[in-house]
Write a protein that binds this DNA or RNA. Structure first.
Length: 638
RNA sequence: GCCAACGUAGCUCAGUCGGUAGAGCAACGGUUUCGUAAACCGUAGGUCAGGGGUUCAAGUCCCCUCGUUGGCUCCA
């Protein structure tokens, strides 16, 4: 049998293991955790029976990482099995940043349990128990798990058609698993259990609630430390913490959970973004509209919201014996405006935009700061167009979203979601629409992912996933094609031949919602907003009382230049004022002492310990202007 | 909604065995007039989330409700 490793073909007897190869060759990674042969991933101890090129995988390869995560999940399950006799095992897969395992136990795990489990894991890792693969027939496997009273495993087997199943054994612990795994538990050195939580069996809320333990593993001590540090940094960036510290917003038990109160500084940022948003939409041929917040029941019957979205809607209020609902979406309102006239093919496309506030009932357990709320303002728009305009419109929307993401410094990924199992409309229409989206994406040139079956029931969509400064992704803007509303509402236009034709409708946001976007933005910038967004751009800091007159005049001058300035004329030392301005993340500080007042100059300090020295007023204004400029797109207007 | 943990001053947090509420910062009043990340002295601030129970006595133990946090499910 011929196996080549590192472009070095060597004959090996059939049944050689990657570990053998590793030991008989120099120059191969000594930290390999698994191998790849002809596209499939192998344990290092798995005998090779076919020719091919052998590659070794370390923790730095995605597949190697997965193997380590998975093996660590097994190690944890072993520890839990030993410490909690009678525990039932469910599943324990690797996930993007670690692993988890679901258990059914007598009582939920406590933080002390986690520590104990972790200690037991370390012990078993030190034992360097060999991890051995073996196979049982379907009947043997079923019998084995039935006898062991492991009903979740029994259910898993019953759901598969396979005639045999692979198992892994380490010490006394056995788990059914596809593998592959590390050769022995001594490979697992750097791991930490993070938290435990309830999780439904198979994600179904009607089924048993199991206890899930999450953990993380790393290739070495430093990587583990770095990962834990990243978690700490995420805490420092948390928009709920910064929102309070920077006095941006609050939520009140008294008023209701999930409802946001924007304080002056938070409102200031939101206002800047909204003005920016409106200007850009007018520039791009959108018309902005306003619609009421409560609408009659019949409209939501017609739209299908009461049928499909009722559980997310607030209970109705009765007026003159008719039910009115707070709107959970803006589309029905925009459709009514569209339908207030007969529309010609020449009128299209019509783009109605609105910063439209909607109310949705969200289950109490899902609320989260600004990111998941019950009342929020979507940067919504609905585009009504002819089928032949669809591609150009989508292209325009992608371009607008790109502009927005760049303006706020977000990197992003695009994702195309196709037809889900439960959906309306003909295959032909779906195919055409999906292809149109795909063409627009191709033309755009940026890479994109495809999520098969991820679309809405009424049409395919493109999602924009924001990547923040920590590399975390957030669901942001979304563009959805809709075949449902045009049918339900008979949204038509008169074509050039005088016949009625059905419109195509696009729902889109380019930020997501103001609340969620602001939340993302706070975390992205760690509260240190660029000057154009900063609620306060300049703090004027007189050194002693003698400069108060000059400082006040300076502050007034800055305000008259449309700069957002605040004056700190409290009786405090300059170090104290600077410290506070720094912690409030104000971009510029104009320090004025005796010298500056006499010479009509300012000592300019920039956020982050940068002293730019003394400047004339004109210079200082010029300096600040560059940073406070509002981004504009270089549109080719025709 | 479900599982778990948590809820003490505006914020961050102490509070032992059940014995009657504490610090730092912030606020307020003074003193100080100061050159790039915390001057000094003083004052005030609490229905210990809310309600019920056990007890001679509850921030502390038990139950219920509300809220928050981490997950599950769902989503902008």
């Amino acid at each position: 049998m011929k196996v080549s490793a590192k472009d070095n073909p060597v004959e090996f007897p059939s049944g050689v293991t990657p570990l053998n190869v590793l030991q008989s060759h120099s120059g191969l990674p000594n930290d390999a955790v698994a191998a790849r042969l002809n596209g499939s991933i192998l344990s290092l101890t798995q005998p090779i029976t076919e020719d091919g090129e052998l590659q070794f995988l370390t923790f730095n390869d995605p597949e190697g990482k997965e193997v380590v995560f998975h093996s660590t999940a097994h190690l944890m399950a072993q520890a839990v099995t030993e410490l909690f006799p009678g525990v039932k095992l469910a599943i324990g897969p690797p996930i993007a940043e670690g692993f988890y395992y679901d258990f059914e136990v007598e009582r939920p795990f406590t933080p002390e349990d986690l520590q104990q489990i972790e200690e037991r894991m370390e012990k078993r890792a030190n034992d360097k128990l060999p991890v051995e693969r073996f196979v049982m027939s379907r009947e043997e496997a079923l019998d084995y798990y039935k006898k062991a009273n492991q009903n979740y495993k029994v259910e898993l087997i019953e759901d598969f058609e396979d005639s045999s199943f692979s198992f892994y054994r380490q010490g006394d612990f056995v788990d059914m698993c596809r593998g592959p795994h590390v050769p022995h538990t001594g490979y697992l050195k750097h791991f930490k259990l993070l938290n435990c939580a309830g999780a439904y069996w198979r994600g179904d809320e009607n089924r048993a609630m199991l206890q899930r333990i999450y953990g993380v593993a790393a290739g070495n001590r430093k990587e583990l430390k770095d990962y834990l540090q990243k978690l700490e940094e995420a805490k420092e960036r948390d928009h709920r913490k910064l929102g309070r510290e920077l006095d941006l917003y609050s939520i009140h038990d008294e008023a209701g959970p999930g409802l946001i109160f924007w304080h002056p500084h938070g409102a200031r940022i939101r206002n800047i973004i909204e003005t920016f948003w409106r200007d850009e939409h007018y520039r791009r041929g959108y018309e902005l509209v306003y619609i009421p917040h409560i609408l009659r029941e019949n409209l939501f019957i017609k739209s299908g919201h009461l049928e499909n979205f009722r559980e997310n809607m607030y209970s109705p209020m009765q007026v003159d014996n008719i039910d009115y609902y707070a709107k959970p979406m803006n589309c029905p309102g925009h459709i009514l405006i569209f339908q207030s006239h007969l529309r010609s093919y020449r009128d299209l496309p019509i783009r109605y935009g609105e910063l439209g506030t909607v109310y949705r009932y969200e289950r109490s357990g899902v609320l989260h700061g600004l990111l998941r709320v019950r009342g929020f303002t979507q940067d919504d728009a609905h585009i009504f167009c002819r089928p032949d305009q669809l591609e150009e419109e989508i292209t325009g929307v992608i371009d607008l979203a790109d502009f927005m993401m760049n303006a706020f410094g977000f990197d992003y990924r695009l994702c195309l979601s196709t037809r889900p199992a439960k959906s309306i409309g003909s295959d032909e229409v779906w195919e055409h629409a999906t292809e149109t989206l795909r063409r627009a994406l191709e033309k755009n040139g940026k890479p994109y992912d495809t999520e098969e079956g991820g679309g809405a029931f009424y049409g395919p969509k493109i999602d924009v996933l924001l990547l923040d400064a920590l590399g975390r992704t957030w669901q942001g803007p979304t563009f959805q094609l809709d075949f449902n509303f045009p049918e339900r509402f008979n949204i038509d236009y008169i074509d050039s031949d005088g016949s009625k034709k059905r419109c195509v409708m696009i729902h889109r946001t380019v930020l997501g919602s103001m609340e969620r976007f602001l939340g993302n933005l706070i975390e992205h910038y760690k509260g240190a907003f660029p000057a154009w967004l900063s609620p306060v751009q300049i703090k004027v800091l007189p050194i002693t009382d003698d400069q108060h007159d000059y400082a006040r005049k300076l502050h007034q001058r800055l305000k008259s230049e449309n700069l957002r300035s605040e004056l700190d004329d409290r009786n405090e030392k300059i170090g104290y004022k600077i410290r506070e301005a720094e912690s409030l993340k104000i971009p510029f500080m104009f320090v004025v002492g005796k010298k500056e007042a006499e010479e009509t100059t300012v000592a300019v300090r920039e956020r982050g310990r940068k002293d730019h020295g003394v400047m004339s007023l004109v210079e200082a204004l010029h300096f600040v202007r560059k940073a406070t400029e509002i981004p504009r797109s270089s549109l080719q207007m025709d």
